[in-house]
Design a binder for these strands. Structure first.
Ligand code: FES
Ligand code: FES
Lengths: 131, 131
DNA sequence: ATATAATGATACCATATTAGTATCATTTGT
DNA sequence: ACAAATGATACTAATATGGTATCATTATAT
């Protein structure tokens, strides 16, 4: 029952580090030495963060990454969607097709309530609030 | 981000069916034909439910399963623990050892709040309430 | 120009978890 | 004795997660 996968977790730590540096770039090498995250994995994460425009990358010697927006505009729920897909916790399933009873299922209804709360909270957590 | 695995899901459906039958036993064959769950898988689930004393099994011809306690005493959180292990959603991890910063980490603190809510709610859902 | 140090793109591999099967033993009613 | 049920247990398949490897591209410094 893991809400946060390692992708997301690592990405958050990397972003925290980058965000704290007000000016200038942060290279993968630096992040690796500080955070201890496996280099190729971290590189992959940063590349997707770049594609998704959460950071801006600069190639070439002296290059690296900087934030592409204010930390308070970086929402944990968005990071989770990027690395983990849609924020859904309550899909009853019937051999890979959605359960036919889902419209009336009381259990699903209760899970939906939980889901709404969880997703709501995750949308409220931004990078600034955990710096 | 799946809260409920298929084990648990199937188990709940099976229990619902068994619980609705006030008197007498329910066999795996019957459950299979009604619920469409793969037979050996369902058998495995019911065997663990029996070991955990949520149902009582009867062997031999004409045998099957019945509830071992009132539906309202069957708690979803317990089922999840049985099939999915401890109810934890917020473990920051650092290459398989727990993260050293977890005591002061603001993100973890926020996840803890979410976790307490979720687990609290899951403990409140019982079989009766979803019949 | 060229060497170097950085990221981009992509494909691949390893491990763990989840989902499902198979087989044989045991019990019980007829 | 036989048939119909569960018990125990080991195995296999599929998927998701975590991590590597490789080569291409870009920018800087000399
Ligand atoms: S949605 Fe199918 S039984 Fe709940
Ligand atoms: S508990 Fe380690 S960074 Fe949050």
């Amino acid at each position: 029952m893991k809400l946060i996968t390692r992708d997301t977790d690592y990405a958050i730590r990397a972003l925290c580090f980058i965000a704290r540096r007000q000016k200038g770039l942060t290279s993968v090498s630096e992040l690796v030495s500080v955070l201890g995250i496996p280099r190729p994995f971290l590189r992959k994460l940063l590349q997707t963060l770049n594609k998704k425009r959460l950071v801006k990358s600069y190639k070439g010697k002296g290059g690296g990454f900087r934030m592409a927006r204010l930390p308070r505009k970086i929402i944990i729920a968005d990071l989770m969607r990027i690395f983990q897909g849609p924020l859904k916790i309550s899909e009853h399933v019937f051999k890979n097709s959605p359960c036919p009873e889902r419209k009336v299922c009381k259990f699903k209804q209760k899970l939906d309530v939980i889901e709404r709360y969880v997703v709501g909270e995750l949308k409220r957590i931004n990078l600034e609030s955990i710096l």
